[in-house]
Design a protein around this nucleic acid. Structure first.
Length: 569
RNA sequence: UGGGGUGUGGCCAAGUGGUUAAGGCACCGGAUUUUGAUUCCGGCAUUCGAAGGUUCGAAUCCUUCCACCCCAGCCA
């Protein structure tokens, strides 16, 4: 068990970053590892972030190191307190504890001073090229760029101009501060990157104190260094930025840090590959589109693989951590099959979910030879293997509900369920035989008249005959009505959003609502956070938003594995 | 076509010159089972992007080639 107290956690896998870190501890480069998870508070977290969280916090946890949660909040136009708080809650939900809660925006003052240091060293200058000109001067992938006319501006003048940028004397876009590196570098990131831009925007934390904001490349490495971070882990697309990361740290003087101790050595950026989940999207832009155009219920729609969505769907923190452990950390981008995620939650819930009976599509069954008005209480276990989960009583009576899917008018031989003249066992109850099928004018099956075998309790039959089929049921008398939402993958193509119009890629059956589900009454006594296995059906949880005792609403987290369905494909 | 990366079974992923190339997911058998669940047992890469080379020995070293990903925001 980890210090977070989560159960059923798999041991942390070994990967190349851990090897690097272990070597650097061994050879004395660092005393201990110090990582950070650095989201920009401009949206909600999804599974891709979970991978990074588990990597950063997990590495620190496994190596007795530390990890900060740091908001990389240098772009006031996109960020908000709401996002920041949601992200913080998601990290906590996963069960991790940060060493320090940090904000890049807390470093604005020192960042400014470091920029001045670079100007003083002749390594940064104020430029007045506009965006379009700058693009022209930058060159292309195959052609070198050209020096800006402002590149040789005197240090004194740069200092004055930068000060005036800060004072708000110029319009947005009029000036930028640039590093003076190499306009002909084959690495485009190094062609005099912009360090500061003018933005007259209210920052969700800094308010209107600033009208110039530092860029990611300038901010991130300094934030890492100032926090004493040893390993700065990020995704592959930042590989080109590493050269700039190192350049900036090599050219400024970090005297001390203010959280944690000063690292012996500068932080090292290491990149790892992103993981994409089949049949889902992680792109912020597309997520916004799904929400705004009403394809889903919101950022926490249970079909979304945002952490809030997965939480509402019924995924546990342990299952998500185990999923991240399962997919590994490498230097290549990967596409993960949905079954890996499903396996992770099934594995967790198989061990921990209470078993109950729930009928999604009720079909009434009347046991014609069972005495009217009589009932029996049957004691059943809450878990087939874990006795500590206790027992409960369910009611058996003359009128029951079974699931419509457990009956076929003309079933194939291998259908181990009910059909005209067929016999099945009601789980924990008696064997019943279907004598009569009642249909309405439209021809729909609306009720079954069956007879029960009074000698068939306790799983045995008097004559020793074997009954292959076992189905679940609830007593009509005390069944609880509930709305059950059956979720499935949101898209019907493995790589949605490849084209820009993904509306046609949506799975029309991603949400099927059963308004009249019948559940055994014990469900009402359960805790709101409990998870259930509806035997033979799947795993379910209460919907955090819409559930009430008056009107129970449950979400299907995931179905049980279903080899019968596979056979029928 | 400049620079930076990556290529091991359907999907992930160990492997860092030396017996039959870990493990998970998926799939296929079979056993147990009052959940067609779970559990169990068995199967599933003569081969590691390709071709050459070095070596007694190569997925691991060298050469060439091929494929794919990222970079030309005053986003992160």
């Amino acid at each position: 068990m980890s210090k977070s107290g989560l159960k059923n956690l798999k041991p942390a896998p070994k990967h190349f970053i851990r090897s690097i870190a272990e070597n650097e501890i061994k050879n004395g480069k660092h005393d201990s590892v110090y990582t950070r998870f650095p989201p920009e508070p401009n949206g909600y977290l999804h599974l891709g972030h979970a991978k990074s969280i588990c990597l950063n916090f997990g590495l620190a946890e496994d190596m007795s190191g530390r990890c900060n949660l740091r908001f990389d909040d240098t772009n006031p136009e996109k960020e908000s307190t709401e996002y920041m708080e949601s992200i913080r809650a998601s990290v906590e939900w996963l069960g991790y504890e940060w060493d320090h809660l940090c904000y890049a925006s807390d470093y604005f003052d020192e960042l400014y001073d470091f920029a001045v240091e670079l100007i003083n060293k002749g390594l940064a200058y104020v430029d007045d090229l506009d965006a379009e000109q700058m693009r022209e001067y930058r060159g292309t992938l195959t052609e070198a760029g050209r020096n800006s006319p402002s590149r040789e501006r005197a240090i004194k003048e740069n200092l004055a101009l930068f000060e005036r940028m800060r004072a708000g004397e110029f319009a947005a876009g009029q000036y930028v501060l640039r590093a003076k590196i190499d306009m002909s570098s084959p690495n485009i990131v190094m062609r005099d990157p912009i360090l500061y831009r003018i933005r007259f925007a209210e920052h969700y934390r800094a308010g209107d104190k600033w009208c110039i904001y530092p860029m990611y490349d300038f901010t991130h490495c300094i934030s890492d260094a100032v926090e004493g971070i040893t390993h700065s882990l990020c995704t592959l697309e930042f590989q080109d930025n590493r050269e700039l990361y190192d350049w900036i740290l090599a050219n400024i003087t970090i005297k001390e840090n203010h959280v944690g101790e000063r690292g012996k050595a500068l932080p090292r950026q290491i990149e790892f590959g992103r993981s994409n989940l089949e049949y889902s999207i992680a792109s912020k832009r597309k997520l916004i589109q799904l929400v705004n155009e009403g394809f889903v219920d919101g950022w926490d729609d249970p079909r979304l693989t945002t952490l809030d969505g997965l939480k509402r769907r019924g995924y546990t923190p342990a299952s998500i951590r185990n999923f991240c452990a399962e997919i590994g950390i490498t230097k290549k981008d990967s596409t993960i099959e949905m079954t890996v995620l499903e396996n992770a939650i099934r594995h967790d819930l198989e061990a921990s979910a209470k078993r109950v009976f729930g009928v999604l599509k009720p079909l009434k069954v009347v046991l014609t030879n069972y005495p009217e008005g009589e009932t029996e209480q049957i004691e059943v276990r809450n878990h087939p293997k874990d006795e500590s989960m206790g027992v409960r009583a369910i009611t058996f009576s003359r009128e029951l509900y079974i699931d419509h899917d457990d009956f076929m008018l003309d079933p194939p031989a291998k259908f181990f369920r009910l059909g005209p003249g067929r016999e099945v066992r009601l789980r924990y109850g008696y064997a019943i035989t279907c004598d009569e099928v009642i249909r309405n004018e439209a021809g729909d099956v609306v009720e079954l008249r069956c007879s029960y075998d009074p000698e068939s309790a306790k799983g045995k039959t008097a004559d020793g005959r074997k009954i292959k089929g076992i189905i679940h049921w609830v007593s009509a008398e005390d069944a609880v009505n509930a709305e059950v939402r059956q979720y499935d993958r949101l898209f019907n193509v493995p790589n949605p959003g490849a084209s820009d119009d993904f509306a046609q890629e949506l799975n029309p059956d991603s949400l099927v609502i059963f308004e009249n589900a019948k559940l055994e009454p014990s469900i009402l006594a359960a805790d709101i956070h409990d998870r259930f296995q509806f035997e033979r059906v799947g795993y379910f949880c209460f919907d955090a938003k819409d559930h009430s005792e008056r009107k129970p609403v449950l979400n299907r987290t995931v179905s049980l594995r279903d080899t019968w369905a596979n056979i029928n494909k």
